[in-house]
Design a protein around this nucleic acid. Structure first.
Lengths: 217, 217
DNA sequence: CTCACTATGTGAAACATTTAACGACTTATG
DNA sequence: CATAAGTCGTTAAATGTTTCACATAGTGAG
């Protein structure tokens, strides 16, 4: 209820799900404690950064001991609202959309794709990854109170769909199309642009050389 | 050839492909000039940030006029090495892998997926998006001199595959599995974790409220 | 040619994030 | 119990990024 944690840096917030997932792994392996150093090696985040991240939530660890996995996990469960599930709609059941639907989100996760839409009549009525596919024409009727949408449609359809989603009450969109969509200021959009990610990687490869390759024996 | 531009901030480097793509659009629309303000509205990046980004490459614009699309474009083409194509391998032709293969990378792009691998014999020999699928057992034989790989395998296979890729000469990996892979220090890995992106969006939605929704008429 | 506009390029400030370093406390060991 | 080793939480410094605000210079209309 308290929205006082608004002071947590965004960079930290983005890492929380990563920590949470890894702690879950540790827990199911029966591990009882973990140090920031161990965690660091597993998730590839500097150990000081991990300690700093955790410290925004108070003193979760014990000096000389580390963190109690069980305790940390239950703490993150609350913080990440793992108790209440957030319902998500997916628009565009192409390959990328199908990949999402088959992803096992419910495990370790507070999000569930509740409903999917596609413009292709041949896909409508089928089930993909346990989610029923509706026709996009019925979006306004069937989307219900869902507030988060994953947009995996062709980019030409992106802006139009975004507007319909917003009109239907969606307030957060995960946009996988290359189109930069325009939405009212109360709607949050995160862009993930696969082509750009690849190009950026190539750019770094060519212009930001890492240390020389070392001959391994 | 000169690796002197290594001073360009990483944040800027990540935006370059975005600028490049949008400039291409403008160019094919026949637009001759563009201001940082126009560009800003289209790509959703602050105009001062755009000017700053461009300024790392020198004075590309003209005061009172803006930027010449043609000139800017040809400049970026050189900078982003759009002339020489980088060859990429894709490992794991599941839904996500297929989405990549069907993506039209060659348009506006200096990267081409040259070869794909999968562990499923029924997929081997088929063509997806114009790319031939080979069996992953033949990876070392057939990968050639490819230096960039897209990893879209099940997460349990990620670390093992990464090691084989590195051994085969790959120096940059775009990792879509939730597994945080460990590689030698000369190999660059970018992680894109779909589940985490979704969880992070939900976290922001709940904890970082945007301005109140405004009634629209 | 003049003058009002326009829009760049950048110094400086603001903001955000990471990392180093270490005091303080816990645990483990003999 | 004393002491060595381990590890957190945090202060302070370093680093990285964005944004403001404006001098400057080119544009374009009359």
């Amino acid at each position: 209820m308290d929205v006082e944690q608004t002071k947590i840096p965004q960079a930290t917030a983005k890492r929380l799900p990563l920590y949470y997932r890894f702690l879950n792994n540790l827990h199911s392996q029966g591990k009882l404690r973990v140090s920031s150093k161990e965690l660091s090696e597993a998730v590839k985040v500097d150990s000081a950064t991990i300690r700093r991240d955790f410290s925004y939530f108070g003193a979760l660890g014990k000096k000389g001991y580390g963190y109690n996995v069980e305790y940390l996990l239950s703490f993150f469960r609350k913080t990440l609202d793992q108790d209440e599930t957030t319902e998500v709609a997916l628009i565009g059941v192409g390959n990328l959309g199908t990949a999402f639907l088959n992803y096992n989100f419910t495990k370790n996760n507070n999000t569930r794709i509740q409903i999917a839409f596609d413009a292709d009549h041949s896909r409508v009525g089928t089930e993909v990854g346990g989610v029923k596919v509706e026709h996009v024409d019925d979006l306004e009727d069937k989307i219900g109170r869902v507030s988060v949408a994953i947009l995996t449609v062709p980019s030409a359809a992106a802006q139009g769909m975004a507007e319909r989603l917003v009109e239907a009450g969606v307030t957060a969109i995960l946009n996988f199309t290359p189109a930069r969509i325009t939405v009212p200021s109360h709607v949050r959009v995160h862009h993930i642009d696969l082509a750009i990610e690849l190009q950026a990687l190539v750019y770094f490869l060519k212009h930001y050389p890492l240390e020389e390759a070392v001959e391994e024996e």
